[in-house]
């Protein structure tokens, strides 16, 4: 049976993990490669690296990081952040990334999704969508949630699927950082209206939140950062708990 995926997300700047990471048995908590190895060892099904480097130098460092991760970790990983062209994707995939995640650049130029899917295959194109519930309407936001758009989450998600995305990573800005649980109502609606896998993101605080997003939110995968980085929820404990709830996981 296909299992539900647990995906730690690492924020990267200039080749280093940012945001607090507090991991036991780790020589250097800022080194994304070390962290990736630990996660792979401790039951993560996939990894997402979100790169927020703004400079060209930072982008070069990212490639070095991707090469090292590919060399030392053999679970699939996705790289996102500032990707806006075929050339950007080409170098990341050549360096060993399995998938790329695009967000703002897809909203600005939706044809990019078609171009990437045609050139590299849908399986490596993840479209990340950040949205906020404004008076009952889920509206897409850009640039880390700072810029509102006129796009409705569900319309945009359907367009993204039609254009060839292989997966959607949906972050609810209302839930992100709250540790109050995932946006399960919107997630369930996405799952019902779409045929590609949906990754839930934003709001993880307890094991129960993961159970809920798989059962109520019908998510295919759940992504989180701080609860994993600070060891609040060990991934293996989480998976044992999910298994007890009859949610299929890889153990």
């Amino acid at each position: 049976m296909l299992t539900k995926r647990i995906i730690p997300c690492l924020d990267i700047k200039n080749g280093r993990t940012v945001k607090g990471v507090n991991f036991v048995d780790l020589r250097d908590a800022g080194d994304p490669v070390e962290l990736a190895k630990q996660y792979a060892l401790k039951g993560a099904d996939e990894l997402v690296f979100l790169d927020i480097s703004a400079t060209l130098e930072g982008r070069k460092t990212r490639i070095e990081m991707v090469l090292k991760v590919a060399e030392q970790v053999n679970i699939p990983f996705t790289v996102g952040g500032g990707i806006s062209s075929i050339a950007d994707v080409d170098v990341l995939l050549q360096s060993g990334a399995d998938k790329v995640s695009i967000n703002s650049s897809a909203v600005k130029r939706p044809e990019l999704i078609n171009e990437l899917a045609n050139k590299f295959g849908s399986q490596c194109v993840v479209v990340a969508i950040d949205a906020k519930n404004i008076n009952g309407n889920w509206m897409v936001h850009l640039a880390g949630g700072t810029i509102p758009t006129e796009l409705n989450l569900f319309d945009w998600a359907k367009e993204v699927e039609q254009r060839g995305a292989g997966e959607i990573l949906f972050t609810s800005m209302d839930n992100d950082g709250t540790k109050d649980g995932f946006a399960n109502e919107a997630l369930a609606k996405l799952s019902e209206e779409l045929n590609i896998p949906i990754i839930a993101s934003g709001g993880a605080g307890t094991i129960q939140h993961f159970i809920d997003t798989f059962k109520i939110g019908k998510s295919d995968a759940a992504l989180a950062a701080s609860v994993f980085h600070f060891g609040e929820i060990p991934i293996l404990d989480l998976k044992e708990a999910l298994k007890k709830e009859n949610i299929p996981v890889r153990l």
Binding site: M1, L2, T3, G166, E167, N195, I196, P197, D220, R250
Partner: peptide
Amino acid sequence: KNLRVPHLGWNS
């Protein structure tokens, strides 16, 4: 049953 495509993830 209209399962999701791609078949993506860990399966036995």
